[in-house]
């Protein structure tokens, strides 16, 4: 299954109380195109989506905050995961879409293939975590979404995905517009 298919299939699991932070590049473009709007669509600040998610989760404890990030972005912000492991903000959930490449910039390899995500997440003190090596059926993915999004603790789901076929167009909203629409909707 490709990353964009995973994002599109999140739709039925997202409620009005879910606030999404999506990492720069393809992930935010797919989130913009396939999931309810408005959400936080990052244009830059590579490595920071998890930190932004932590801040948002602290400010909005009654809402569920879902960070969707690629593996390159996650690895750049890896040290921020120790902060997340330490503070254990229960309403923060993270999905890592791992295609082992920097897809938006032309498919250069990341070093993600060397990481054992289950051991990493356990070692970071993340309370609830899982990893899907391959998605053979949608039902397995849906079950993993349910577990992630109903978890009462900080939870992280790592998913190995296939490379997307093509990059989507940039998000038409200007960054200030993204901020204003998102904040107005909370």
């Amino acid at each position: 299954m490709r990353g964009e298919e995973v994002i599109a299939s999140l739709k039925e699991f997202i409620s009005d109380d879910t606030l999404i932070v999506s990492s720069n590049g393809n992930v935010s473009r797919q989130t913009y195109n396939f999931l309810p709007q408005p959400q936080v669509y990052l244009r830059g600040s590579m490595g920071l989506p998890m930190s932004i998610g932590l801040g948002l989760a602290l400010a909005q404890p009654e809402k569920q905050v879902l960070v969707i990030t690629g593996d390159g972005n996650f690895l750049m912000g890896l040290s921020s995961m120790t902060t997340i492991g330490y503070y254990k903000t229960d309403n923060l959930k993270i999905i890592i879409l791992d295609n082992e490449i920097y897809a938006t910039t032309g498919g250069q390899e990341t070093v993600s293939s060397t990481v054992d995500y289950l051991k990493l997440l356990e070692g970071l003190g993340i309370q609830h975590y899982g990893s899907l090596n391959s998605i053979r059926s949608p039902s397995k993915l849906h079950e993993a979404f349910k577990i992630l999004l109903t978890s009462k603790q900080t939870a992280v789901l790592h998913i190995n995905v296939e490379e997307d076929i093509e990059n989507l167009e940039n998000i038409p909203w200007q960054p200030k517009e993204i901020k204003n629409k998102f904040m107005k909707n909370i």
Binding site: L48, G55, L58, A59
Partner: peptide, 26 residues
């Protein structure tokens, strides 16, 4: 006032920006 110990200064900017998007000040 709660303090969140960030591992890096750019991470701290991320946390503060997320907090602001959630309509609070850091």
């Amino acid at each position: 006032i709660q303090y969140i110990a960030a591992t890096r200064e750019d991470e701290a900017v991320g946390i503060a920006c997320g907090y602001y998007l959630g309509k609070k000040n850091c």
